[in-house]
């Protein structure tokens, strides 16, 4: 094999050589193959990951909240396992602060798929004294970790599949697809297992577990493109609707039983949509008139604010909020 190294700065880049060999590739390439698009490549990668979990983990569960990312996960699971049933149950850690329409959607979707849905709630953890609130209406986002870890112990899950993406947040950007958690459910960012090629190390000792993120490499825009391509049904609050809100700092805060206007704040009715749906006390919508997935794609492609930056008050408390929550056993 001849080696030529060319540094001529005037030279345009030639077609790159093959991976080890080139001449032999030509026959197959001439035939009628088309390259996969980036979305198809991501989809295939995610299906591969889901099947690895099913095949190698003893007792996995898929975390399903009714939110858009977990709805994408469910479609990917259909693609990975149908015509068989999913080789794992769905599980939701309900904060008790969820949007009612999302909860209704969650139950309907699980029933349509004919899959088993386990719900464990932070309310129960509070009642049993496992979670102590500082104030009755505070965000329950961080408290989910306790309920989640209790549920993992209750059912003996060794793997929890989640819809987190690396583009969401900077601690997530460094997390593996198969993310190991010790017996306290903790993530140790400085001591992660090397993850090479698509050879996932799924092994854990009893009491430990892995969190698996099949859509790690997807971005917010990819998720919306996939929703449009697959014509996925998602909760209505993701699309523009009129809602009572108050303006608080840079955020638009939805008025609900948990968030009443404070002194001096006036209630407005705006056309808004949610980019994420989490705990009602800390999830804010953005002003928008986008009423279809295609319109949201157009808006997402030109937005200048990150998904969590616009909508999650709990991520704004410090530069390391997500990292700290993850070390405590968060998703």
């Amino acid at each position: 094999m001849e080696t030529t190294v060319n540094f001529d700065s005037n030279r345009w880049v030639p077609p790159a050589p093959g991976f080890g060999f080139k001449s032999r590739v030509s026959a197959a390439r001439k035939s009628s193959r088309r390259a996969l698009t980036h979305l198809e490549t991501l989809e295939s990668e995610s299906i591969h990951i889901l099947r690895e979990v099913a095949a190698e983990c003893r007792n996995p569960a898929l975390l399903f909240s009714g939110g858009k990312d977990s709805l994408v996960l469910l479609r990917l699971a259909e693609k990975a396992f149908r015509p068989a049933r999913f080789p794992f149950p769905l599980m939701h850690i309900d904060t008790g602060h969820n949007f009612p329409e999302v909860i209704a959607f969650r139950d309907r979707r699980a029933a349509e798929l004919g899959e088993r849905l386990i719900v464990r709630s932070v309310e129960d953890s509070i009642r049993r004294g496992r979670v102590v609130l500082k104030s009755p209406d505070e965000s329950r986002n961080a408290h989910q970790s306790v309920t989640l870890l209790d549920a993992i112990a209750e059912f003996g899950f060794d793997a929890c599949i989640g819809g987190a993406r690396r583009d969401e947040e900077k601690a997530r950007a460094k997390e593996r697809i198969f993310s190991f958690r010790d017996e306290f459910g903790q993530w140790d960012p400085k001591n992660q297992r090397p993850e090479l090629w698509d050879l996932y190390n799924t092994r854990v000792h009893p009491g430990e577990n892995v969190r698996v993120f099949p859509i790690s490499n997807w971005t917010e825009l990819d998720v919306w493109r996939y929703i449009a391509k697959e014509r996925l049904d998602i909760p209505g609050i993701y699309y523009a609707h009129r809602r009572e809100v108050v303006r608080r700092g840079r955020s638009v805060v939805p008025v609900s039983r948990l968030a009443q206007p404070k002194n001096g704040e006036s209630v407005e009715i705006l056309s808004v949509r949610f980019r994420t749906v989490g705990d009602m006390t800390c999830t804010c919508p953005v002003e928008s008139t986008a009423a279809t997935a295609r319109e949201i794609i157009a808006e997402t492609a030109t937005t200048r604010i990150t998904e969590r930056g616009a909508t999650r008050m709990d991520d704004q408390t410090s530069e390391a909020s997500m990292e700290l929550r993850k070390k405590e056993g968060y998703f």
Binding site: R166, K170, A171, A173, K174, P189, K190, Q192, S216, N217, E319, A320, E323, L324
Partner: peptide, 16 residues
């Protein structure tokens, strides 16, 4: 990305 990295001004792990 990580708190430890910001404290030490270095990169520890692969970031995507």
């Amino acid at each position: 990305g990580l708190q430890a990295e910001r404290e030490q001004g270095i990169t520890i792990d692969v970031a995507y």
